[in-house]
């Protein structure tokens, strides 16, 4: 079964916490990765790769730049993940 939006956001929060050391509770839908969460462009790649593995989804480099907020990423994953 595909992950729900809630599961995706909490999964992203764990990933961002692991990679950038940001408290899990700070990772909210409206937060910008770069401006609010201090995830720079290279850490963003690590976040994306970890999210790909966790949610069984492919996020090509060209699409990464469109993922400005946690909500953008959650929507993208929800739309592209492979239902199990």
């Amino acid at each position: 079964m595909a992950a729900t939006q809630e599961e995706i956001v909490s999964g992203l929060a764990e990933i961002v916490n692991e990679i950038a050391g940001i408290p899990v509770e700070d990772v909210q839908l409206d937060k910008s990765f770069t401006d609010d969460l201090d995830v720079d462009s290279l850490s963003m790649v690590e976040v994306v790769v970890a999210a790909e593995e966790r949610f069984d989804v492919k996020i090509p480099d060209d699409d990464v730049k469109n993922l400005k907020t946690v909500g953008d990423a959650a929507d993208y994953i929800a739309k592209h993940q492979v239902a199990k």
């Binding site: 462009s41 290279l42 963003m44 790649v45 690590e46 790769v49 480099d61 990464v64 730049k65």
Partner: peptide, 12 residues
């Protein structure tokens, strides 16, 4: 170079 693409390829 395309920094993010290179980074992803180089690391993973």
């Amino acid at each position: 170079q395309e920094g993010q693409a290179v980074f992803r390829w180089a690391v993973f």
